[in-house]
Amino acid sequence: MRDGWSHQPAAKGGCQCGAVRYSLPAGPKKATLCHCRMCQRASGNAFVPLLELPSADVVWHGAPATWASSSLAERGFCATCGTPLFYRSGDTTEIMAGSLAPDFTFTPTANHGIEARMPWVNHIAALPDRETRPELVASVTSHQSEES
C-alpha cells in the first residue's frame, strides 16, 4: 500500500442540508491535515482534515457543485447550503472529514502544507475543554439534515 494509506471501513456523509450525500466503500484511504493557504481559504478554517481515496470509489447521491480553485484541482460543495465537501485532483478525491458521519474514526497520519500553518494551532492541545451548555443545545432548533 502507498505511504500513509491504510485500510479503512466503509463510510458515508454529506452536507448540512442533506441535498448532497456520499458513500465510500471499505478499502484504502489516507487521513491527513492540510494547512496550506488554499485549504484555509476554502474552508474558512486554520486547517482541513481530509480523507483521501480514489475518485472512482466515491458514490454521490445528489450532485455537488464544483469550482476550479487552481490549475491542479477543483473543490466540491453543496450549492444549497454551502458545505465544503471535497478537494479533487487527478484520480483522487479528498473528502472533508467534517462532512463524514460522526461515528467514522478519523485518525490523521500526516500534516501537509505546513509552510502556511497558523502558529496558534500548536497550542490547541493545551487549551481547556468545554462542552456546549446542555440548556443551549436543548433550546436550538436545527435545520441541518439528521442523516449521517
Score class of each variant (00 low, 15 high):
Ser55Gln: 12
Ser55Arg: 15
Ala56Met: 05
Asp57Phe: 00
Asp57Ile: 00
Asp57Leu: 13
Val58Thr: 11
Val58Trp: 02
Val59Trp: 00
Val59Asp: 08
Val59Gln: 15
His61Glu: 14
His61Ile: 10
Gly62Leu: 04
Ala63Gln: 14
Ala63Trp: 00
Ala63Cys: 03
Pro64Ser: 02
Ala65Lys: 10
Ala65Gly: 01
Thr66Ala: 09
Trp67Val: 12
Trp67Glu: 03
Trp67Asn: 09
Ala68Met: 13
Ala68Gly: 08
Ala68Ile: 05
Ala68Cys: 12
Ala68Asn: 15
Ala68Arg: 15
Ala68Asp: 14
Ser69Val: 08
Ser69Ile: 07
Ser70Pro: 02
Leu72Met: 09
Leu72Arg: 05
Leu72Glu: 12
Ala73Phe: 09
Glu74Arg: 15
Glu74Thr: 13
Arg75Asp: 02
Arg75Lys: 11
Gly76Ile: 02
Gly76Asp: 01
Phe77His: 05
Phe77Ala: 01
Cys78Thr: 06
Cys78Gly: 02
Cys78Gln: 04
Ala79Glu: 08
Ala79Ser: 14
Ala79Met: 00
Thr80Gly: 00
Cys81Met: 06
Cys81Val: 10
Cys81Ser: 07
Cys81Phe: 09
Gly82Asp: 05
Thr83Pro: 07
Thr83Val: 11
Pro84Ile: 08
Pro84Arg: 06
Pro84Ala: 11
Pro84Tyr: 06
Leu85Ile: 10
Leu85Glu: 04
Leu85Cys: 10
Phe86Trp: 06
Phe86Arg: 08
Tyr87Met: 05
Tyr87Thr: 01
Arg88Asn: 12
Arg88Ser: 11
Arg88Gln: 15
Arg88Pro: 04
Ser89Glu: 14
Gly90Cys: 04
Gly90Asp: 07
Asp91Met: 11
Asp91Leu: 11
Thr92Gly: 04
Thr93Pro: 05
Thr93Val: 13
Glu94Met: 12
Ala97Ile: 09
Gly98Ile: 10
Gly98Asp: 05
Gly98Lys: 11
Gly98Trp: 10
Ser99Ala: 15
Leu100Gln: 07
Leu100Phe: 08
Ala101His: 07
Asp103Tyr: 04
Phe104Val: 14
Thr105Cys: 13
Thr105Leu: 13
Thr105Trp: 01
Phe106Leu: 12
Phe106Ala: 11
Thr107His: 12
Thr107Met: 09
Thr109Asn: 09
Thr109Tyr: 00
Ala110Phe: 02
Gly113Lys: 08
Gly113Ala: 07
Gly113Phe: 09
Glu115Trp: 00
Glu115Val: 04
Glu115His: 04
Glu115Tyr: 00
Ala116Asn: 11
Ala116Arg: 14
Ala116Asp: 14
Ala116Thr: 10
Ala116Pro: 00
Ala116Tyr: 08
Arg117Thr: 03
Met118Gln: 15
Met118Val: 14
Pro119Asp: 11
Pro119Leu: 06
Trp120Ala: 06
Trp120Val: 04
Trp120Glu: 09
Val121Ile: 15
Val121Met: 15
Asn122Ser: 13
His123Lys: 14
His123Arg: 14
His123Thr: 12
His123Met: 06
Ala125Val: 01
Ala125Ser: 14
Ala126Thr: 09
Ala126Glu: 13
Leu127Met: 13
Pro128Trp: 01
Asp129Tyr: 03
Asp129Gly: 00
Arg130Pro: 00
Glu131Pro: 02
Thr132Met: 14
Arg133Ala: 15
Pro134Ile: 03
Glu135Gln: 05
Glu135Lys: 06
Leu136Met: 10
Leu136Lys: 08
Leu136Cys: 01
Val137Ile: 15
Val137Thr: 14
Ala138Glu: 13
Ala138Ile: 01
Ala138Leu: 04
Ser139Thr: 05
Ser139Lys: 10
